[in-house]
Computed example of a mutant assay.
Amino acid sequence: MFSNSVQSTWAQWKADFTTAVHQRNATALAQSLTAFVSDDTVDALRNSQYAGVDIGAFADVASEYNKYINSNLDVMHAAYSRVVNAFAHQSVLQEDWMIATLRLLCSDLTALALQDNDPQRNASNSVNTLDLFSKLASIFFNEINRDSSKIGSRGRSFFVPVYFSFRICFKLNELTRCPKIIEQVDLVLNLVDSSEFPSADFVTYNYWLGRLRLINHEFEDADRSLSVAWTGCPDHYPRQKRQILLYLTATRLVLGKPPSSQLLQDYNLDGLFGDLISAASVGNFAEYEHLLQMRCTWLMRYRLYGIMKYRLKVAMFRNLMKNTWMALNQTRTISFWQFWNACVFAGAANFTIEDAECILVTLVDLGYMKGYLNHAKGVVVLSASPFPPMYEVYK
């Protein structure tokens, strides 16, 4: 057992650490890790127990972390690797509050990996960081796989290096590494129910997964992941809810079921999406293209420009065809020329009759419109209910 002075130091440290975790103060966490760490302190704490905590195990983590944060950029990955080994293999991980420490370690390494202004060196550091995160996630996965009934903090820590890996992949456009990360997560979720993990970590993972699905044009899967993130994110985190809704709105625009105007207003997104949704819903190409160019820089920053410009066009042609059908008293037969006139009137640039025919073929092939084309007569023959909801087509 410790001397009174060491016990007092440890008690004060634990109080500071608990406060830092409660306040989510990364600076205070780092200070608490290094406040009393020295060779003498580590030796005094090693192989000791206090208040049911394996102090010796934590002393190893704190000692390695102290060396890591004082290392230079060239050796930080080797130093961090030692922290990973000390952190992941010690029984101190059974303490839930150590998850916050893991989050701090991953956050630190991510920031260091991305801070170098030399692109070549930055990429090298970040790839090394991804390898370390993969190693850390693998350690947790092996623990879960060994005994999924005792998931403990090792299992609850699993998603932390996972979503930091996503962050680096997106920052450096290393998205080809993401499928390997997802594969490992899927294996874990086959062993353990998602409710076993902290909801915040599961929400964050689904946010990044949804963004990846959206970039890959897997819209239904993107909708599913982003919806999980949206539902799981508490209302008292409005900034995070808004970020999720931003990508969910783009996804659902393509699927034909955009959020309500009121919901967009609640999160200050109506000014960005409201008029775009209105133009897309009626197939007003001229207005939509004008609005898109006005917001080009903003949409490109969030990787949404290509999706909003190209993937939404087919949906807009479908909406325009539906409005044409309604304007013609829901006639069962519409000529290619009638549809072409509607497209030109709506502002479709450099549009020919052949283009109109190709669009109609596409709408039928994709299931956005039910009917068939009579090319000899230059007409499309529609079924009794020719325009199913778009989101049903994706199912």
Rank of each mutant, 00 (worst) to 15 (best):
F351Q: 11
N72S: 12
F170V: 00
Y205S: 07
T27H: 08
E392Y: 08
S260L: 04
A111H: 10
E354G: 06
G155L: 01
A349P: 10
W230D: 05
A356R: 00
S157P: 00
D74K: 12
S225V: 00
I334V: 01
F339M: 01
G52N: 06
V92T: 08
S5P: 03
L328K: 03
T34P: 04
S8V: 02
R82E: 15
V361E: 15
F285D: 12
L109N: 01
V53K: 13
P259S: 07
Y237G: 05
K370A: 11
V203N: 03
N173R: 08
K309L: 13
F2P: 00
L73M: 11
D201R: 02
P258A: 01
R46C: 12
F2C: 02
Y305V: 01
Y237D: 11
Y372F: 14
V393Q: 09
F202W: 12
L291S: 07
A137R: 04
H22W: 05
D60T: 03
T333E: 15
T41A: 15
A100F: 07
L272T: 11
L360K: 02
N268G: 06
A35P: 02
Y288L: 02
A28D: 00
K135A: 09
V53M: 15
K135E: 15
I151M: 12
Q265D: 13
L187Y: 09
E287C: 09
T9F: 08
V185Y: 05
L245T: 00
V61C: 11
A315E: 04
G271H: 07
A11Y: 05
Y50S: 02
K135L: 13
A349K: 11
E183W: 05
L373P: 01
T251I: 01
V282M: 13
A35F: 06
N70Y: 02
G152E: 14
V393H: 05
S148Q: 10
S38E: 02
F58A: 05
G371M: 00
G306C: 08
L175V: 03
T101V: 13
S194L: 09
S194T: 10
R24H: 13
G152V: 05
L29Y: 07
D365M: 09
G367A: 07
F58Y: 09
A376R: 11
V344I: 10
T110W: 02
L93Y: 04
A349W: 08
A20R: 00
N173D: 14
F197S: 04
T331P: 02
S383P: 02
A100W: 05
N142S: 14
T18E: 12
E289K: 13
A57D: 15
Q184Y: 04
L172I: 00
I215E: 14
A15M: 09
A57K: 08
I99S: 09
Y247C: 03
N216R: 09
D235T: 12
K257R: 12
D54W: 08
S107K: 08
Y207H: 09
F170I: 01
G371P: 00
N268Y: 05
Q265A: 15
R301N: 10
Y237V: 12
T129S: 04
D186N: 14
K322S: 09
A11S: 14
E64L: 04
D365N: 14
K309C: 08
E289Y: 06
